[in-house]
């Protein structure tokens, strides 16, 4: 139990660290692009939570696939919607 506790604690520590980084990065003058680093870090944090807190690491491959499917389908939705919006001004 002790070993497990330390293991979870390390994950929590990493999460805290990433939170500090993402918050700090937000103060950089990146203007319209400041979402990019913070969203990347959010994905890393989500990955940590899924792997360790949600115990995906010890789970069968089926669950890996399932956990990815939601994000995969969401990216399809976003991809095609964004495609419409960025190509909308043309041809003028």
């Amino acid at each position: 139990m002790k070993a497990k506790f330390g293991h979870y604690l390390r994950v929590l520590g990493s999460l805290y660290l990433l939170l500090a980084i993402t918050t700090g990065l937000a103060f950089l003058p990146l203007d319209a692009w400041n979402w990019l680093p913070s969203v990347v870090i959010a994905f890393v944090m989500a990955g940590l939570i899924m792997l360790f807190f949600m115990r995906l690491r010890q789970s069968e491959p089926l669950l890996w696939l399932t956990s990815a499917s939601g994000f995969a389908w969401l990216s399809l939705l976003m991809l095609f919607v964004v495609l419409d919006y960025i190509s909308r001004p043309w041809p003028r």
């Binding site: 993402t22 918050t23 937000a26 400041n34 979402w35 913070s38 959010a42």
Partner: peptide, 8 residues
């Protein structure tokens, strides 16, 4: 990040 870190 999407609501608090846009322009802190």
């Amino acid at each position: 990040p999407l609501f608090y870190l846009v322009h802190p």
